[in-house]
């Protein structure tokens, strides 16, 4: 079953990799092996620019949303009060709101407060939708967390920072990492919200791909996806080797 699902997941990826070496501009028919899309990719400054924008947005959004989201999850789990009930609703609601609505509403707000649209507004918007995902991923971990450990640590005289660094972070680490990963992935792939709140100089990759699909050669994007996957895979393998050495 897992095998079948894996085939289902990777069939399109295989097509994509094959297409990136196809010399045809629109990737319809096989017209022979070619590396020209990779060359074009490294020459195309607008694609490189869009990639950089995407990475900056995703990194900043992930960082900020992970910090705020974790703190929110902590509060939601630790305290039971009327404040937390409304807090819960507030953190929950963005998860059940369609992108389109989020995009339009934020655009209208930025405009009515005369915030100039650009990379900053894109980052603010991304933090907003990533935050809730981080909070709920971490919250899931916290709900299984045994709080008597904290009590025990306190009784043994550990200070709050020590508790945070020595107990909380290591135990919640996987949850926080999962949340951050989710945030990064969501931000990298977001098209709708970025499309609405972007301004001069804020074209990210998904936005670029969308307009390329209509007017330009999408073949370059195939090549880019392959480069990106190779990069991710390398990082994952290096990470694995690194952690193996450590333990």
């Amino acid at each position: 079953m897992t095998f079948a699902v894996m085939i289902f997941m990777y069939l399109p990826i295989a097509v994509l990799i094959a297409q990136s070496f196809n010399s045809s501009r629109y990737g319809g028919r096989w017209k022979g092996f070619s590396l020209k899309w990779y060359e074009a990719l490294f020459r195309d400054s607008s694609v490189i620019n869009a990639t950089l924008n995407t990475l900056v947005v995703a990194l900043v959004a992930t960082l900020v949303s992970t910090v705020i989201g974790t703190s929110a999850a902590w509060a939601l789990n630790r305290y039971k009060s009327r404040l937390q009930t409304s807090h819960y609703g507030l953190v929950y609601a963005p998860l059940v709101v369609p992108d389109v609505l989020m995009g339009i509403s934020m655009l209208l707000m930025f405009v009515s407060f005369k915030v100039e649209l650009g990379l900053t507004t894109v980052i603010l918007a991304h933090i907003t939708f990533c935050l809730s995902f981080v909070a709920f991923t971490v919250l899931a971990r916290l709900q299984d967390f045994d709080f008597t450990i904290l009590q025990a640590a306190q009784d043994l005289g550990a200070g709050p920072w020590r508790i945070l660094w020595k107990i909380l972070l290591p135990l919640l680490g996987p949850g926080i990492a999962a949340g951050a990963m989710m945030a990064f992935t969501l931000s990298m792939d977001d098209f709708v919200v970025t499309f609405f709140v972007g301004g001069p100089g804020s074209t990210t990759l998904p936005v670029k791909v969308y307009s390329m699909m209509k007017h330009g050669p999408p073949a370059i994007i195939n090549a880019l996806s392959v480069v990106f996957m190779a990069f991710t895979f390398t990082v994952a393998i290096l990470g694995q080797i690194f952690t193996r050495k450590k333990f």
């Binding site: 705020i68 989201g69 807090h87 609505l101 509403s105 707000m109 603010l124 909070a135």
Partner: peptide, 23 residues
Amino acid sequence: ELLSTAPSYLWLFVFFLLPSLLV
């Protein structure tokens, strides 16, 4: 409680609730 609640609460109030009401 306030310290850990405020960042997300304020953030979502300003960047989510307000704009949604606008729509």
